[in-house]
Design a protein around this nucleic acid. Structure first.
Lengths: 134, 134
DNA sequence: CTTGACCCTGTAGTTGCTACAGGGTGTAGA
DNA sequence: TCTACACCCTGTAGCAACTACAGGGTCAAG
């Protein structure tokens, strides 16, 4: 399997596959006589795993940990669970932040009277304590 | 006002202030005889504006546009309103994405039986189509 | 007169890719 | 056989939006 096939099979760009290899997430595959990368099923499985975890918003560092953990089949699953839970907490925090921000932005936009910039409530709200210029 | 004072007055790091100057968001201030940056009220107002917009999640590029618009007091407020509305749409999309992702992650975590990694449902879910290794 | 807190410039690092530049390889059609 | 084209290679630079040095200079207090 050449890099282009692996990439399209996992909805990844070729450059990204090479990038994952460079940072040590994907092991270097065998090479053909023309120095082309030749991938096998294990590479496909590993890259699928990486992509899925990335789609779920895990950082590459978290993916790296998950991969290490998944290689040790006898180990307890709790470390995996822990990483996922930390990630869930982060998502909750982001949603809360964005929602609060959304409320405020909505309020600001609602105050727009479509006049000139001089009377613009949006601009005013953005610069809460403007001291008379100069 | 020295850079450290300006920075702490706006909850900004000194390096970030210099960074804003470098990318042309904050005009270069006068210098003291010792070559220290000397800021005035207009700088404080402008940096407050930038920080507030950043806190609301506007990109630096959007902040740049807002600053340009706010400098032209006679202009219509609609362009400002437009930028804010586009931003609001983006926030809504992010919240929707994160919420969907949260639901799935929650489901995955809920399936954890705290056994060994070999039986880990989280790992399984992450690698949906694993082909027998090697 | 020295210690420490501040200031300066310039460069490199962060995350997770993406986009070249400048080459080599493999195959299908004229 | 030539050649066009899609694919592959390495290496480097770029994106956002900072942050963190390194290696210096300045200034007020004790």
């Amino acid at each position: 399997m050449k890099i282009g096939e692996l990439a399209s099979a996992t909805a990844t760009k070729v450059e990204t596959v090479r990038y994952y290899e460079k940072i040590g997430l994907l092991p270097p595959p065998a090479r053909t006589s023309a120095n082309y990368r030749a991938y096998g099923h294990d590479h496909l499985a590993r890259l699928s795993f990486i992509r899925r975890a990335r789609d779920l918003g895990f950082t590459l560092e978290a993916v790296r940990e998950l991969l290490t953990l998944s290689d040790d089949k006898a180990q307890s699953c709790d470390a995996v669970d822990g990483i996922a839970r930390v990630h869930l907490t982060e998502i909750d925090r982001k949603v809360a932040d964005l929602t609060a921000l959304r409320v405020e932005l909505d309020r600001i936009i609602g105050s727009c009277r479509h006049g000139t910039v001089a009377d613009c409530k949006i601009i005013e709200t953005l610069a809460p304590r403007t001291v008379p210029a100069k």
